[in-house]
Amino acid sequence: MSERTPMIEMCNVSKHFGSVIALSDISVQVHSGEVMCLLGDNGAGKSTLIKTLSGVHRPTHGEIRLNGEPARFKSPAYALDAGIATVFQDLAMIPLMSITRNFFMGREPTVGWGPLKRIDWKLADRIAKQEMGKIGIDVRDPSQPVGTLSGGERQCVAIARAVYFGAKVLILDEPTSALGVKQASVVLRYIAKARADGLAVIFITHNVHHAYPVADAFTLLKRGGSLGTFRKEDITREEVLNMMAGGAELESLDAELAEFQRSDTERADADTSGVRPPLAAGQ
């Protein structure tokens, strides 16, 4: 794996906002046909990282490489033209517009030329229906408002849109965070399909239970820094959880909870025995 050229790579990337260090010396590699999960709690730097990859921010230090070549994106449009598609949490969809309109978003197929040029709605509807069918979602009427779909299905519309328009790198920002178990499984299934189709997928989440089944590798972020990158075969789900939460913090929490439980037990024993605990001075 290491001998192949990564599809996308961050090399010692840092991002500063004035005196605030949002990212510090981050290096990540993602190959085609691979799912890299970026894991971290709130404030770990996940959002800044994906905005840097997708052209919203420019790195303060370091370099981004696309298929081995240095890449500098002036805006998200340049990143999209280069094949980097980002699906943010808000999905950039208009609920009252049709599935087809949301699928194409201004890139609808046309017929005719010059002043007679017009949108080919029949072809657009057929493409939207076919692309959704490929991921197992049967859309009876692609002209129905996208707001009538479930959360998981709307995520899949956004992902299918990115894939259809030639994405080589697919960045997913917390796609399962607000979904139930069944809806999340739909999205995870499509992430696995995108990997099988040869895309390089970056899956940002704080939910290890969603990340572990589909991931090939994990990069753990904490307070803007990287705790390392690990292949799935080299780390267990429990080890990932422990690193995210912090072993020392968990041990401290366990000790505090045990102390609370001991105090509650002593108070309950005193109440049942009729012996009241001694009053503090002045009571």
Score class of each variant (00 low, 15 high):
197 D>A: 10
226 S>R: 02
76 P>I: 07
76 P>L: 12
280 A>V: 01
278 P>L: 14
244 M>R: 07
191 I>S: 07
153 E>A: 06
195 R>D: 01
274 G>V: 08
224 G>Q: 07
255 A>F: 05
63 E>V: 14
195 R>T: 00
38 L>F: 08
88 F>D: 00
154 R>Y: 04
264 D>P: 00
160 A>S: 14
139 V>E: 08
264 D>Y: 12
16 H>A: 07
188 L>N: 08
172 L>I: 07
236 T>R: 07
95 P>R: 07
12 N>Y: 03
249 E>C: 01
89 Q>V: 02
29 Q>P: 00
218 F>P: 09
242 N>E: 14
207 N>M: 13
168 K>R: 15
39 L>C: 04
38 L>P: 04
148 T>L: 06
42 N>P: 10
215 A>F: 13
14 S>K: 06
136 G>M: 11
31 H>S: 05
22 A>S: 15
268 A>N: 13
230 F>V: 08
203 F>A: 00
177 S>D: 04
37 C>E: 04
154 R>E: 11
162 A>N: 10
91 L>D: 08
77 A>K: 15
228 G>R: 09
21 I>S: 11
195 R>P: 09
25 D>E: 15
66 L>F: 09
217 A>M: 08
36 M>D: 03
63 E>M: 13
179 L>P: 12
138 D>L: 10
111 V>W: 06
204 I>K: 03
116 L>F: 03
20 V>K: 08
121 W>A: 06
256 E>K: 15
241 L>S: 08
196 A>Q: 14
82 A>S: 12
225 G>K: 07
10 M>L: 14
79 A>E: 11
107 R>L: 12
36 M>G: 03
222 K>R: 11
152 G>Y: 05
40 G>S: 05
125 D>Q: 07
